[in-house]
Simulated scan of single mutants.
Amino acid sequence: MLASNSRTPLKVLNPTLADRLRVFNTAARTLQAQGIRIQGFYPNENMLVVSPEAGQRLVDQGQSTGFKRHKSAGSTRFNVQFQGVTLEWREPISFARPSDWACPTIH
């Protein structure tokens, strides 16, 4: 086996990745400082998963942008942008809705 006499420092983080991780960590720390529990960390996708209540709270407070709703058979997935990071949460179909949604259906 050949061995190298010179040790080249291995640089794992390039400047772009280092900046992206800095933004990701800052957003995660800001959410945690606001009392929001993060349920999933996905730095490769630049995404954090939060609870439905936490996501709605951020939307109601105007701390997020780009609200998107993706409906499926069993749940609805929501995405917003928060300080350069995507936040995601899911609400099952049986999730509690406002009282005005419970009005009688007229056929």
Rank of each mutant, 00 (worst) to 15 (best):
M1A: 06
M1I: 14
L2D: 14
L2A: 05
A3S: 02
N5W: 15
S6Y: 05
S6M: 13
R7Y: 15
T8K: 06
T8N: 10
L10M: 11
K11F: 03
K11W: 11
L13P: 01
L13Y: 13
N14I: 08
L17S: 13
A18S: 14
D19M: 09
D19N: 07
R22A: 15
F24R: 02
F24L: 05
N25W: 09
T26N: 07
L31A: 06
L31D: 01
A33K: 13
R37E: 08
R37I: 11
Q39K: 08
G40E: 05
G40S: 15
F41H: 07
F41I: 14
Y42V: 04
Y42A: 04
P43L: 04
N44G: 11
E45T: 11
N46L: 05
M47I: 03
L48E: 04
S51H: 05
S51V: 01
S51F: 03
P52S: 02
E53A: 10
E53P: 00
E53Q: 04
E53S: 11
A54V: 09
A54N: 07
G55W: 00
G55D: 15
V59F: 09
D60C: 13
Q61M: 12
G62D: 15
S64Y: 02
K68E: 11
H70V: 08
K71F: 07
A73M: 08
A73Q: 10
G74S: 15
N79T: 10
V80M: 02
V80Y: 03
Q81R: 03
Q83Y: 03
Q83T: 03
G84N: 04
G84M: 12
V85R: 00
T86A: 15
L87R: 01
E88T: 11
R90Q: 12
R90N: 14
E91Q: 06
P92Q: 12
F95T: 10
F95H: 06
A96V: 08
R97T: 14
P98N: 15
P98L: 08
P98E: 12
W101F: 15
A102M: 12
T105S: 13
T105Y: 12
I106H: 15
H107Q: 14
